[in-house]
Design a binder for these strands. Structure first.
Ligand SMILES: [Mn+2]
Ligand SMILES: [Mn+2]
Ligand SMILES: [Zn+2]
Ligand SMILES: [Zn+2]
Lengths: 155, 155
DNA sequence: GGCTTATTGACATTGAATAGCAATTTCTTT
DNA sequence: AAAGAAATTGCTATTCAATGTCAATAAGCC
């Protein structure tokens, strides 16, 4: 809630405020992890995040990542994207347009899209069920062009 | 593909054909599990399914359930619904209208709904990205009426 | 600086999901 | 109907993502 000066606060500022508000502490480990998450637009899982942090020479334990993720979700900085091969996958959402995912069942390729009709559906749901909608997750599963071609050739 | 006689084949008939087509075998254990899954419209996880099967006096191992689920998904009889508290949750889809889920973040209450606009979105995605869409999953997360009330009272 | 207490990293533990295997059972073939 | 090949079962052991424990450390407040 400390959005001074009209400028958009950075994810680090947001998170620092969040921590203070909760009586928690801002540490170099947390900063390093957040910087890494926001350094690309890629989706990530704990393992891939851990590896890319280590590759840059930082020495952070996996436990710290596991402990940080729920806090980042609470602070609305990241979101669960999908659960695949036994692991949860995430992406950072702060500073990016909300979007949904079109995924290839075969090769796991992902296209991102957004569609205003989903917001309309949400509004109708609020009226119809009396829920207060917080967010949504629309995953569309299909076959990408090249996987369709492969499937056609092998038949 | 053995839809003879105009009548809709039962889930057991569907699955029997599926197994034959794959060179697999139809067993009493598989039949028991499928009957249980299709005996209600409830969502289920492996544990709850196992318990309700045991409560009816059947003696089936959990391993058989874990092994059957991927087959039922392949045969389009069930689908993953959501991943929560470390477990995947499923529902049977054969014989029921497709629907999406509106879930309360607080109390996990679930409303089911369907909206034709999602199908329109799918069509647009096929054109735009060249994917062949197979299915979708739209989860809307929010606060149900009573959880909103509770939240308002405690502030 | 000094004090309180959250956080870290190392290690142990949990628990869903999977793998291995011998005893059965299904299902095709005579 | 009996036999044989191969899939399935139930058991156990194993994997591995995620969580818990705890002493040492470090952040944040005075
Ligand atoms: Mn994305
Ligand atoms: Mn449902
Ligand atoms: Zn593909
Ligand atoms: Zn609720």
């Amino acid at each position: 809630m400390t959005a001074r000066k009209g400028k958009n606060p950075s994810e680090l500022e947001i998170f620092r405020d969040f921590l203070k508000h909760q009586g928690m502490r801002y540490t170099p480990e947390r900063e390093t992890i957040i910087r890494e998450i926001f350094s690309t637009h890629e989706h990530f899982d704990v393992d891939s995040l851990y590896l890319s942090i280590r590759q840059k020479g930082h020495r952070i334990s996996k436990a710290s990542i596991y402990r940080l993720i729920p806090l980042l979700i609470q602070a609305n900085l990241i979101e669960e994207v999908f659960f695949e091969k036994g692991q949860m996958h995430y992406e950072h959402i702060y500073g990016h347009e909300h979007h949904c995912h079109l995924r290839c069942k075969q090769c796991s390729k992902i296209e991102e899209f957004s569609d205003h009709r989903v917001a309309q559906i949400e509004q109708d749901l609020e009226k119809r069920f009396g829920y207060k909608v917080l967010r949504h997750r629309l995953d569309v599963i299909g076959l990408c062009k090249s996987c369709q071609k492969k499937a056609a050739e092998s038949s």
